[in-house]
Each structure stands twice: as C-alpha cells, then as structure tokens.
Design a protein around this nucleic acid. Structure first.
Lengths: 225, 225
DNA sequence: GAACTTATAGTCATATTGACTATATAATAA
DNA sequence: TTATTATATAGTCAATATGACTATAAGTTC
C-alpha cells in the first residue's frame, strides 16, 4: 500500500447544482490530452483510499466543493474510452444547492463553473455518456425518495419545491395537484409565515419535517407525478 | 493493449436462477487464498476487453453459463476488501432460468452449484455485501420492469407467475388481486389451453405478448404489488 | 379603483387498491 | 357415487388517488 495512483482506474463526478434551475459542475482541464476543454471533474484513485474517499478528495481538489454525499453511478469500462491507455472510470454523482458552495479551481483544473445542461457540448472521452446516464439516474432518484432538504432555503414556498421537481424531472406539473400530493405526505410544516417583498400575493412558507423526511428516505415511497 | 490482466481490477457475478424458487450460483474456488470456499464467480479483467465482455467471459469460463444478459451492479472498492493487494471489483448480476443452462466448472473453479439463499454462508472477501446489494437491486428491478419472459415455460399459469414474483420480492401476494393487476396490463395472451395431469382444477395457460412485454420494458412502469 | 399575478380551495368523474366473499371445476377419498 | 378437498376464477365494496379542471382570495402595480 502506498499513495501511488492506480494507473488504470479513475473517478469522474457529475455534480448537479440547484439554484433556480438545474446546473452541472464542469472544470477546465489545465493539462493532459484534454487541456483547455471543459469536462467532468475527475482524477486518479490512489492505492490507499476507498473509492468513495477518492471521489470526495478529487472533487474537493479540483473544485473546492467538499462535504457532499456522493453516490456511485456506474463503472465505465469500454476499452477505448480513454486515449493511449486502458482506463476504467467509476462515476459518482450528487445533487447539491449551488449557492452553498464556493468554487475554487485547483489541482489539474484551471477553472470551474456551473453550466446549464443546454450549454454543455463537446465533452471529452465518454463524459457525455456518463452525464446522460447521470441525468437518468437523477430522475429515478427524485421519484424514489424526497429531495429538497438541502436544496431549498430553510423556509420555502410550495411553488419553489414544485420548480425543483420540475427542473430535476424536466416536466411541467399542475399546481393544485402538486400541492395536494405534497401536503398529503405530511412532510411539510407550516411556518405560519408568508413571503415578503414579492409583487403578488405572498405564499405561505413551509419547512421540512426532518423526522418524516428521513423516514420517507428509508421506507421507499414512489412519487407519482 | 494486450490480453494481460489489469492487476487491480476484477469482476464478480451474482447470478440469480429461478426454477420453483430463487437460487444463487456459486463456484468452489480451486486455487488462491479462498481455495475450497464457495464464492461468487469472479476473475480478472484483461486490458483488451470491455468490462461487460470480461464479465461474460469470466462467468462462462467458471460456470459454463453463457449468453446471459449481465447488468452492472456497482464497483466495490474498499481498500481492504481483498487481502494482500488492492483490488477494486465491478459486480454484475443477472436473473436466468436455471434449467436452461448446464453447469460446468472450469478455470479457477473446481465446482459450481445453485444455492438457496438460506444455505449461503461464509462467503469470502466482501461477497456477502455484494450479494445483499444484488438482492436489493433485484427487488427494485422486478418492480420497474416485467420479468418472466425467459424464466417461465412458454405457457404458464397465473399462479406460476405469481410465485415468481413472490420469490423474487420475498413477499406473499393476494391471488385475485394479482390476477386482476396482471391481466389488466394486457401483457398476457390466453392460450385457450389448460394444465394437464394436476390433481385439482386445471388452470388456464397464458403466454407473454412479446410486443407488449418489450414496450413495457422500455416505457418504465411501476408495479405496485 | 382596475388590471394583473399568484396563491389556495374545491369539484368531479374515473381508476386503483386491498381485503374480502362466492362460485366453479376437477381430482380423489370414502 | 358422493363427499371432500384443493385450486381457479369471478365478483363486491369501501376507501383512496388521480388528472383535469374551475373558482375565489389576496396581494401589487398601473
């Protein structure tokens, strides 16, 4: 064991960020074959760290984003996915609140930035395939467990929550029906407060009931939207 | 590129087999640290094959089982999961009809056999963790797409299909409700035939409508049982 | 005060669910 | 031959969920 790198094994991270809409975190490569290109943050695994730890370390070094729960997506292992060398990569993904993190490019990255899905193009290697796979996974996850706890302000309106679902699932939802569904889950607590400084009727503010939120995460539910 | 092995990357396969109940395919290791132990079929990836191909090759060499659709489960990469050496393994799984395959131990396996989940114990490395993960994945998959096409005889009764679901999901189902649900999907075609040589009222035989089956596989549905 | 925008309440026909009960059909034991 | 049994299959029912709406309320801005 040493902290030498495993020559043929890498990590790539797909970080989805939510503010008003869904974004993806990319870094500009400072070196190597893909120098100057925007790509998923990625790097090499060392011999003395678990895969999950490698993913967190690499993400932090390249982007400054830390303390994020990374979930494994899949290993991508086509023979020619990487040029000149056989490299299998293990992809991870996460969904975070963009405004909670300061971006700081480092290590092999010269720049780091949030991108709208629509402006992403020409990703190197098989990163496009990884990203598409991550989008599918995200949609699945959103339907299988509640999201939003770390993505919205502590107090939020039902419409904000609805927008979150709409941008993660890329669909439009009916407002009254969404309210009914969400309120029926007893997941939200009425703050007995209203929005301020809005140029229309102020909406009620809610917050998550942490106990219910956690138990819904475990005892699988299916959100049929 | 060569057909040398990647020293630090392996494959492990979880093969679920269905006959009357759910079984798992294990091999007895003929060499190495776990010699004489029953374990998941696994082996090393070479430099010149895709991960998916490596999985198929290894499964075939060890067990004689071929032409199986293997789906990737997850990469397991804890630092000490394998003794004396850092090895990351990519796990695959599949669900097949046990009686369709002849078992033939080979390569690093001295024996191969189907096991009931309850009789499996003392698996080496982190194979128990992998197996448990595969069970969870199986349950998920069974709920998200139709199964049975390759697991049941061409003509089968509703009760046989129900037993398949019950053993994959490890739950009991209500017979009339299961019938209603399945028949309502228009997935089955009435063969206008009945069971023979049974010591009770013979049940109707059905077969899958291949077109509907395939389209249900793609346009995700959720089976709420 | 009128026009607008958004929030929130409520309607309704239809479909689905889980938990049942009832009847039909065949084999076998008495 | 009839009773017993095991299973198949049909049907009931109350409770709940769904999608597509309409209606009204409560604020802002012109």
């Amino acid at each position: 064991m040493s902290d030498a790198i495993m020559e043929d094994l890498s990590i790539d991270c797909v970080i989805f960020g939510f503010t008003d809409e869904l974004k993806v975190l990319l870094v500009k490569h400072a070196e190597g074959i893909s120098q100057g290109k925007w790509a998923l943050p990625g790097g090499w695994v060392t011999y003395d760290e678990d895969l999950d730890d490698a993913a967190s370390r690499i993400l932090y070094l390249l982007t400054g984003v830390e303390n994020v729960f990374l979930e494994q997506l899949k290993a991508f292992g086509a023979v020619n996915r990487f040029p000149n060398k056989r490299v299998v990569t293990v992809a991870y993904y996460s969904l975070i609140k963009a405004s909670d993190y300061d971006l700081l490019a480092g290590y092999t990255a010269s720049d780091v930035q949030w991108f709208s899905p629509s402006e992403i193009k020409d990703l190197p290697y098989d990163h496009e395939q990884i990203l598409n796979y991550a989008f599918d996974q995200l949609k699945n996850r959103v339907k299988q467990e509640p999201i939003g706890f770390n993505l919205l302000p502590e107090k939020f309106t039902l419409l904000q929550l609805q927008h979150l679902y709409e941008s993660a699932l890329q669909i439009k939802l009916d407002k009254p029906n969404f309210r009914r569904k969400i309120l029926g889950m007893n997941l939200l607590i009425d703050c007995h407060e209203k929005q301020k400084n809005v140029s229309h009727r102020a909406a009620k503010l809610y917050r998550f009931d942490e106990t219910v939120y956690q138990s819904l995460k475990e005892h699988k539910f299916v959100l049929d939207l």
